[in-house]
């Protein structure tokens, strides 16, 4: 089962490598990982998408919590939450047929064409990971993908609860 972990940790050199190292050392997988400082610049927030049953998740959460740099860990998927991911898809757009198809699909998914050159369109899409994947599938079937890049998922719990020190 897919799970999203939110981690609040000290914004210090080496802190990220401890998290990543822990996952590889203990054989946990990482589907995506995003990291950036928070509104409080002394802290970073990491969002990790991983897979595992409840027992594995409990171990991961405890192991991450044990790292000295980590202040808080929460499994976002335990409670109501919102998640978003950005994908940029670069498509071959050499003729009208291709260009129209890209435009049509982007509109259906509420994507935006954010860069245009003579032979290439780049489309941006924002949504849940599921939506991003559906979009990539459609683009693959209905056009010619040159490359894609995904941001990895970020998520936040709903309501007034927050991951704070």
């Amino acid at each position: 089962m897919r799970r999203i972990l939110s981690i609040l940790l000290e914004n210090e050199p080496g802190a990220l490598s401890r998290i990543v190292g822990l996952f590889s050392q203990r054989g946990y997988n990482i589907e995506s990982l995003t990291v950036a400082k928070t509104d409080d610049e002394s802290l970073s927030r990491i969002t990790i998408s991983t897979r595992g049953d409840q027992r594995v998740l409990e171990q991961i959460t405890k192991q991450v919590n044990k790292l000295v740099d980590v202040l808080k860990v929460r499994e976002l998927t335990e409670r109501p939450n919102v998640e978003r991911e950005v994908v940029l898809v670069k498509m071959l757009a050499e003729n009208n047929e291709q260009r129209e198809e890209i435009k049509r699909c982007s509109d259906i998914f509420r994507g935006q064409i954010i860069d245009v050159t003579a032979k290439v369109y780049t489309v941006q899409l924002l949504g849940t990971s599921e939506k991003v994947e559906a979009f990539i599938d459609v683009m693959r079937e209905n056009g010619s993908i040159i490359e894609t890049v995904r941001s990895g998922v970020v998520g936040i719990g709903r309501g007034d609860k927050a991951l704070k020190p």
């Binding site: 050199p13 080496g14 490598s17 401890r18 190292g21 050392q25 000295v68 740099d69």
Partner: peptide, 14 residues
């Protein structure tokens, strides 16, 4: 050294 020892320390400082 911080990298080499990372999996086998409780914590480390550079």
């Amino acid at each position: 050294m911080v990298g080499c020892s990372r999996p086998i320390v409780k914590h480390s400082f550079l």
